[in-house]
Design a binder for these strands. Structure first.
Length: 326
DNA sequence: ATGGTTTTTACTGCGTC
DNA sequence: GACGCGGTAAAAACCAT
């Protein structure tokens, strides 16, 4: 909607104190200077024309209508500020200083060679600071987001560290354009949690994130592919301690759960099955074996897995255990 | 888009407290 | 009768192609 070209002009027409006398006069002129007839503004043509003699009084009005409509619209969104409308397609919402590319001064006169050089240097540095600031802001928001989600999930500091490293890399590799900061931040955290060995399921991640589970998954795959990070499928055993402590099952059962998972893996029961489901089933089975009764439904609750899945898995796990000891 | 696999949902019957 | 558990069929979700 708002293209780059309108920025300067929008500023130009904003009702600030800097508005020149010349402009104010032009705004208020409703009488034809030639024949004193009535003047009407044709929005579509962008011209103000005298209805009597046809004199074009003002032909520079083309951007005024759209700009004020935009202003009204953004005000309706309660995002209004005095000044030019903002646009989210630009990292700084179009609010930063921009130095024109024409080598002319404000009057349209060509610049001397010396001044041209100076302007070029200014442009370069202005651009540098601008992109740098943008990066800082981006990073700040993303890291805040990562922190928020991490503490919501009770993830330790090292996961946050890793997540922020991943995010920085994504930023450096220009992976952000076309993706939301929050999406990439969430994906980074998900990746970090898995990499460090304290995984959280995609579901859990999605509940604390501002973006949909689907998008998190998509962005995650994209990020790890582009960054060449390799992450093994989550080891079910990594979920066990958390489930065990949330369920208040004793250490003994937790240990059994690990053993069960180990033998299950040796028997090759686990491939293709969800690690979370396996972990939940193992904990359930272990609690059964050590007579520390927990119900399938409570295990299912803390693991976010259906009872059916637990049933199916834990039978398989026990079978595998029998097969191994036989 | 499609097809195969896994998980979930919903419903059932059975045994126990 | 409520609860935990097991099983089943159909729907939904997931994943590789």
């Amino acid at each position: 909607m708002t293209d780059i070209g309108t920025r300067g002009r929008a500023d130009h027409h904003a009702p600030t104190e800097r508005e020149t006398d010349d402009e104010r006069e032009r705004e208020e002129r409703t009488v034809c200077p030639e024949c004193s007839g009535h003047v009407a503004t044709d929005e579509a043509q962008g011209e103000t024309v005298c209805e009597d003699c046809g004199l074009v009084v003002d032909e520079d009005a083309v951007d005024r209508g759209p700009e004020w409509r935009a202003f009204d619209a953004s005000e309706r969104d309660e995002q209004s500020r005095v000044g030019a409308p903002t646009t989210n397609t630009m990292h700084d919402k179009g609010l930063s200083t921009n130095i024109g590319w024409q080598d002319e001064d404000a009057y349209g006169n060509a610049l001397s060679a010396r001044k041209r050089e100076k302007m070029q240097r200014l442009r370069t540095w202005n651009e540098r600071f601008r992109t740098r600031d943008a990066r800082e802001r981006n990073l700040k928001q993303a890291l805040g987001e990562i922190d928020r989600m991490a503490s919501a999930l009770g993830l330790p500091g090292n996961v946050r560290e890793t997540a922020s490293v991943v995010y920085r890399r994504a930023l450096d590799e220009e992976l952000l354009p076309g993706r939301s900061i929050e999406g990439v931040a969430t994906a980074s955290l998900y990746a970090a949690a898995r990499q460090v060995g304290t995984p959280r399921s995609l579901d859990e991640i999605a509940t604390v994130s501002r973006v949909e589970k689907q998008e998190v998954g998509r962005t995650y795959r994209y990020v790890i592919r582009e960054l060449g990070i390799e992450i093994r499928p989550a080891d079910p055993a990594e979920y066990v301690p958390r489930f065990a402590s949330e369920l208040d099952v004793p250490d003994e059962a937790e240990r059994r759960a690990r053993e069960l998972l180990q033998t299950a893996r040796d028997e090759g029961v686990h491939s293709g099955k969800s690690p979370v489901g396996l972990a939940a089933a193992a904990v359930y089975a272990a609690a059964l074996l050590t007579n520390d009764k927990v119900t399938q439904s409570t295990v299912g609750d803390v693991a976010n897995v259906s009872e059916v899945t637990i049933r199916n898995r834990y039978q398989e796990i026990l079978d595998a255990s029998d097969a191994a000891s036989a």
